[in-house]
Design a protein around this nucleic acid. Structure first.
Lengths: 116, 116
DNA sequence: TTGACATATTCCGATACAGGTATATGTTCT
DNA sequence: AGAACATATACCTGTATCGGAATATGTCAA
């Protein structure tokens, strides 16, 4: 078995920095392909290919308008990533560390009550 | 050029589901390799290999103890992922959508003041 | 219809992965 | 020293990628 396909899920699709850049631009609103080509300075075929991957994982939607294709962000596809990574926020956030202290404290008291 | 190395950054390292599983276990505390092998039901060499990748991107630290190597989570390496994805939270969170409405409203009023 | 424009697809070559299996390295115990 | 244990590394194979270049598909305009 080789590495999972880039289209396997959002995690794999978004591992490519260029695709994140594309999403970052689309976060500002719907865009035709050529806008992305100009704004990101990448070749048109590569943009189309990256967009295909993003479409396959549901991170973007397309709409046809004349000879243009307008791409729009669909952030829903990124929710699983957020859901997973947010559980690690405590490892660097002071706010969560403080919360951990409180919870640990409560736990101590509970144990005290239970045993005495 | 081929796909970026799995060790290129946390995004690539974490695109592999097995490696996320490993981190999820380590979130519960320090563990020797064999614990991971048993808990995740994967072959020992694969676990070692995944741990190497996670080490190279700084997502885990190792500590030697006798013949064991205790691996510990280092969530800091995941912060860039969180920082990136959290900006998309508005696309699925009702709370953020409500905030967007408020901000849009403020913007309208400002424009009104400016032009009259 | 011909041409200009917008986008997608195809073919290429190089690269690196992931799992499997075998083996190497290092440590503890007797 | 030798055996048992814990972990890491090496080698193999199939596969999917990425960028580049060329080309195909589709739409509008004169």
């Amino acid at each position: 078995m080789a590495r999972a396909a880039t289209t396997a899920d959002a995690f794999n699709a978004v591992a490519e920095p260029r695709r994140r850049e594309i999403l970052d631009v689309l976060a500002g609103g719907e865009r035709p392909v050529n806008d992305l080509v100009r704004l990101l300075g990448m070749a048109q075929p590569q943009v189309s290919k990256h967009l295909r991957v993003l479409r396959e994982v549901g991170a973007v939607d397309v709409r046809e308008q004349g000879r243009q294709r307008l791409y729009r962000l669909n952030g829903h596809a990124l929710k699983p990533i957020h859901d997973w990574v947010k559980n690690y926020e405590r490892t660097w956030s002071e706010r969560f560390e403080a919360l951990d202290v409180v919870l640990e404290d409560l736990k101590q008291k509970e144990e005290g009550n239970g045993s005495e």
